[in-house]
Structure formats: C-alpha cells, structure tokens
C-alpha cells in the first residue's frame, strides 16, 4: 500500500507539471538527496556542483540579430544529516556560489553565500538489517529554503530567462521531497522526487515552481571497509514560468522549461569517509522557449559519516 502511495505521488508530481503551462525550460536548481549512506546516522559533507548555460535572444529592433549570453555556475555546498530520534532526519544545505558569465559582451561575476535550506524527512520505511537479501528505505518530508543569499532585484538575465545568476533568490520557498532506495543483494534502485513551491520575492518577482525527479540504478561492491557503487540513470527537471510581477500576473514566458539528463557516476565509502562524482549529460531540453541551452553538469561530494 505504501509503495502504491509513493507511485501515485510521483505520477501526480509529473502530471502536475505537464499541464501547467505551454512553454518549458529547465530548473536552475539541482538539489536532490540521491543514494544516502545508512550505516551511520549522521554525516556532514561538502558538495561541488558545476553547471553552465548559453543563451540567445533575438534583438527587439532586428529579429534577425541575436544577443548572446553565457553563464558558468560553481557551487560549493556544505550539507549534512542529523537524526532526531529513530524516524526523523534533518538535512541542512548551505551553498556558496561563484557565478561568472557574459551578457551581450558584458562580463559579470557574482560570489557569495546562497539560500540555505532545511529539510525534515520521516523514515517511512526503515531498512531491516536482519534481512540479508532485501534492503529498503523510504524517506518523505519537506522543508524550507530561506533567502539568506544576496539578491539585488531583477536583472537583464532574469528577463532573458537565464537561471538566476545572483547568489540568492530573495524568496522563501517550500520543498516537499521523497527518496526511495531498494537493493536486492548487490543491485539496487534509487528514486527521488522533490518539488519546490516558490513565493514572491522582495522585488515582486516569483521564480517558477520546480520539480526534480531522478531514477538511479546502482551496483554495490563491498569488501572489508570499502564499498563502491557505480551508478547510472536519468533525471528530469521541470520549472514553471517565472512572474516578473506576481501581483500583476506578469508571466515571463521567456523562462521555465524542462530537461532530461542522463546521469552516470560512482559513489564510494571507506570506513567513515565517503565520496561521490556524478556527470549529467542533457539528452533533451526545452528551456526559455528554446533560447537557453543547458550544458553537461558535474557534481562531486565528500562526506564524513559519524
């Protein structure tokens, strides 16, 4: 029955977005939990994420001419998990952004602490350590993203539909998420979904709600204190249109969209130390009316488990 609820929830998330608007794009956010270590309760880690985008926009006065922009995002993120009791896991995320790029030949650079997030997940299905064959875990919960990053108002890049280049968004957002892992002996699958409900920021701008769904298959090699998990799968991200002025319902149809990424990587643990590297290749995307192209992404992580 629980599995049925989970499947319904995933389908509901997917269908929510498929009918929500007529234009698609991709989300700037790629926050997700992925495969989580269960053999220690707490961990603290440092993630590095690299993303980049290129954009073009037809000139207003001469539609045959295009203005071009590109953007490189480097995010270093401190994150961790802390158990409260047996069933509640708290996750915290504090990103630091270093963004560079160029818009119509004008270079820009922004750095600073981004928006911090806090999630509380309930362990709905807990792994039964007595069972040697099947291992399952299912987390579900939600949290908030706080406007701790610097936000100075609407930029030209926002207007062109590029993902937010500033360190912060200026808005309080709400997150719901679920993460399911099942493993039979050495082979397993991890499915996760998160949905961000954005609110209007201090400039009256509202970033589009974002959906992030991932499915990963992995193989578990374990010998003594070392375990290695090569993994691969697919990730789908969807973002609704932004509102330039939410109060007046000025929908920015030059924003939002969807992307499907092929994902390949490896995760490894040695005693209390863990590491992960993932490479995401766009296999299909339609973002900002097709004017923004998302390039491959890289993600690395280091964990200390305790």
């Amino acid at each position: 029955m629980r599995s049925l609820y989970f499947i319904i929830a995933i389908i509901a998330c997917a269908s929510y977005n498929s009918v929500a608007c007529d234009l698609c794009g991709c989300s700037a956010s790629n926050q997700y939990l992925g495969i989580l270590p269960q053999f220690y309760r707490q961990f603290i880690g440092l993630q590095y994420q690299y993303t980049s985008f290129t954009a073009r926009q037809a000139s207003l006065m001469d539609p045959t001419e295009y203005e071009r922009a590109y953007e490189f995002n480097n995010t270093y993120q401190l994150w961790g998990r802390y158990y409260i009791g047996e069933r509640v896991q708290l996750f915290g995320f504090v990103p630091y952004h270093m963004n560079t790029g160029s818009d119509a030949g004008n270079a820009f650079r922004t750095t600073g602490i981004g928006d911090a997030s806090l999630l509380a997940n309930v362990v709905v299905i807990k792994d039964d350590s007595d069972c040697k064959t099947w291992h399952k875990s299912f987390l579900a919960g939600g949290g908030i993203k706080m406007p701790t990053g610097k936000y100075t108002g609407i930029t030209t890049l926002d207007e062109q539909g590029l993902p937010n280049v500033q360190a912060g968004t200026g808005s309080w957002d709400f997150i719901v998420n679920a993460n399911y892992t099942v493993r039979r002996e050495k082979i397993g699958i991890n499915a996760d979904a998160s949905y961000s409900l954005t609110t209007v920021n201090t400039a009256g701008y509202k970033y589009g709600n974002k959906l992030n769904i991932g499915l990963l298959a992995f193989y578990w090699f374990a010998k003594k204190n070392i375990s290695v998990l090569p993994q691969g799968g697919v990730r789908y991200e969807y973002s609704l249109h932004d509102y330039d002025n939410y109060q007046r319902k000025w929908l920015n149809e030059n924003s939002g969209g969807s992307i499907v990424l092929g994902t390949i990587g490896v995760q490894s643990f040695y005693k209390q130390i863990g590491a992960k590297i993932m490479y995401n290749i766009p296999v299909g995307q339609h973002f900002a009316g097709g004017n923004v192209t998302v390039n491959p992404r890289l993600e690395t992580s280091l964990y200390f488990l305790f």
Partner: peptide, 26 residues
Amino acid sequence: MMNKIFKGLLVFILFNFIASCQKKDN
C-alpha cells in the same frame, strides 16, 4: 501515523496540481 503522512503529502501535491494553472495578465 505513516498513512496520515502519506495522505497529507498526496493531498498537498494534488492541491498544487489543481492550483498549478499559471494565471496571466490578460
């Protein structure tokens, strides 16, 4: 307890599904 959490989550998602039509200044 867990069923209530699931149902709550499901209702929340369905509510958002219904409310997701993006209004536009016409």
